[in-house]
């Protein structure tokens, strides 16, 4: 009887699989990415290396000496000590962070704008206490500008009624509000002394959300060439909620990580963060192979650093509040070894 190896599903639950089952899932995950995103499947060498990682009985896995990458830690801290500045110090001193990020627990530029003076004071205080680079981050979060929470007509209600032109116009109206809020926050944070801005989960509300982010990123880069601009994606595929929006001649809807990289590079981002969603019912091997296949062409082409999102539910890390060490370390190592990423 074949030996059964402990591993995980995408929801974090512990399962046992044979070596042959793990190998089959690695192939299937890679092929799933190739089929959907029209990327090359992983090479046999890649799959063999992943098989070694996922069939090891060790509880922990790590990269080789010299292969260490930069950890940017969007959303540093857990809000568990109710002291956001102190949490930045914790991440610097105790979690090995290479970069940290101050954030507000209502993680949206629209929400931050209402408490901006307090957030900028907090950022200034954090800069007095930390050495490592400090980002300020929030979500663009375009959906907040739709009624009843925001001023623009609700495009998600208009579309099912077939009122497509009105839905598109509503999104463009929302984009104007969003760009205004993001710029307001960025200007204040730069004045307070921030090192960089993180537009986190860009595209969460689809192509219009991403367009507003790209335009603002370009403006930041042109205004302050030494301020970092990190754009982390919301998902592996840009949803076409509008469907016709373009950035510098390229349609945003339907872009996979490689297309997202090109758009973010054109917008002047200095760090690109692809996100590949986890399928909670598939194995960690399947999910990680799929993530690697989607991200490998990104790092092969990138001219800016690629920091892969590898938190709960993305990048092969299980969708659970406490991602197990065995699973997270394998996903972490696999992304570095296979994709030659610049950071996480």
């Amino acid at each position: 009887m074949a030996q059964r190896i402990p591993t995980r599903l995408g929801d974090g639950s512990l399962v046992e699989m044979t070596r042959a089952e793990v190998e089959a899932d690695l192939h299937a995950g890679s092929e799933a990415a190739a089929k959907r995103a029209k990327v090359e499947p992983l090479t046999q060498d890649d799959l063999d290396h992943l098989l070694d990682i996922f069939t090891s009985s060790a509880k922990f896995s790590a990269v080789d000496y010299g292969d260490e990458v930069v950890l940017s830690f969007d959303g540093s801290g857990n809000s568990d000590v109710a002291a956001p500045v102190l949490e930045q110090v914790f991440y610097q001193n105790h979690h090995g962070a290479d970069m940290i990020e101050l954030w507000h627990h209502d993680y949206s530029y629209k929400a931050v704008r209402t408490v901006l003076s307090f957030q900028t004071q907090m950022l200034k205080d954090a800069q007095q206490q930390t050495v490592i680079p400090l980002n300020y981050g929030a979500m663009p979060d375009l959906g907040r500008y739709s009624q009843p929470d925001g001023p623009a007509p609700n495009w998600s209600e208009l579309m099912p009624l077939g009122r497509i032109d009105e839905a598109r116009a509503a999104q463009l109206e929302a984009v104007e509000h969003l760009e205004k809020d993001m710029w307001c926050v960025v200007e204040a944070m730069v004045a307070a002394g921030v090192d960089g801005i993180d537009f986190d989960t860009a595209g969460a509300s689809g192509d219009a959300d991403l367009l507003a982010t790209l335009r603002t990123a370009r403006r930041v880069r042109d205004t302050w060439p030494d301020i970092g601009v990190e754009i982390g994606q919301a998902a592996e595929l840009v949803l076409g909620m509008h469907g016709q929006l373009e950035y510098e001649g390229t349609r945003l809807a339907g872009q996979w990580p490689l297309g997202q990289l090109r758009a973010c590079t054109a917008a002047g981002a200095t760090i690109f963060g692809p996100a590949v969603n986890v399928n909670t019912t598939k194995s960690l091997a399947w999910n990680t192979a799929r993530s690697c296949a989607l991200i490998k062409p990104v790092t092969a082409e990138a001219t800016i650093p690629v920091h892969v999102n590898a938190g709960m539910g993305v990048g092969g890390v299980p969708m659970t509040p406490y991602p197990p060490v065995d699973a997270t370390s394998r996903a972490s190592r696999a992304l570095v070894d296979i994709c030659k990423i610049d950071g996480l």
Partner: peptide, 9 residues
């Protein structure tokens, strides 16, 4: 992540 692949801050 810090132990598996991080530079060490």
């Amino acid at each position: 992540h810090a132990l598996a692949s991080g530079m060490g801050g």
